[in-house]
């Protein structure tokens, strides 16, 4: 049964698990880091707001924000979810499968980009169409939508209103 006792302490030596002050200090330290990182992200967000879309510096800042996001994820997983204090095997078993995301993301986004490029080459009308300014109030397919479903809106997560945009879609949704 010594095994069970060991498990109860969450797999740690008692000295570590019950050094309450030290653990709490670590928790607040990580909270501080997470807050600082979030504030930095927000500052970057405000800085890049006026920059034109598709400019290089904006892309660079976006990349930086992504890096900060991963850094925050590291703190949450490592300290709040306690993975850093697990045994090495456990860390490996959880983190190695996550590497699959690299190719998952690269291939998907790469193919998305390629879809856009190929379509722009094969279907110039599509590009032309994309240059048209948006009409306000939205008329094609968006109208007839706001009024009838408002009352259903009260509980959005439970029963989303059948967003029947125009006759064609409602027919489709049948």
């Amino acid at each position: 049964m010594s095994n069970l006792e060991q498990l109860e302490s969450g797999g740690h030596t008692h000295a570590h698990a019950f050094d309450s002050k030290k653990v709490k200090r670590e928790i607040w330290r990580i909270t501080l880091y997470l807050s600082i990182l979030t504030v930095v992200e927000l500052i970057l967000g405000f800085i890049m707001m006026p920059w034109p879309e598709d400019s290089l510096k904006r892309h660079l800042v976006k990349g930086l924000v992504m890096a900060l996001m991963l850094w925050k994820a590291f703190y949450i997983i490592g300290y709040f979810m306690h993975l850093r204090h697990e045994v090495r095997n456990m860390i490996m078993v959880i983190s190695i499968p996550s590497i699959l995301f690299v190719w998952f993301i690269a291939a998907f986004l790469g193919d998305g980009q390629s879809y856009k490029d190929l379509r722009a080459r094969m279907d110039p009308y599509h590009v032309e169409h994309a240059q048209l300014p948006m009409e306000f109030p939205a008329e094609e397919g968006h109208e007839g939508h706001e009024t009838p479903e408002v009352h259903k809106m009260e509980a959005p997560a439970a029963t989303p209103a059948p967003a029947a945009a125009g006759t064609d879609t409602s027919k489709k949704a049948e």
């Binding site: 879309e53 169409h129 994309a130 240059q131 048209l132 300014p133 948006m134 009409e135 306000f136 109030p137 939205a138 968006h142 939508h145 479903e149 989303p160 209103a161 967003a163 029947a164 945009a165 879609t169």
Partner: peptide, 14 residues
Amino acid sequence: WWGANPFANSNGTQ
């Protein structure tokens, strides 16, 4: 809402 987007692209296009 699902199926309805009132926001234009950042350059004002559809």
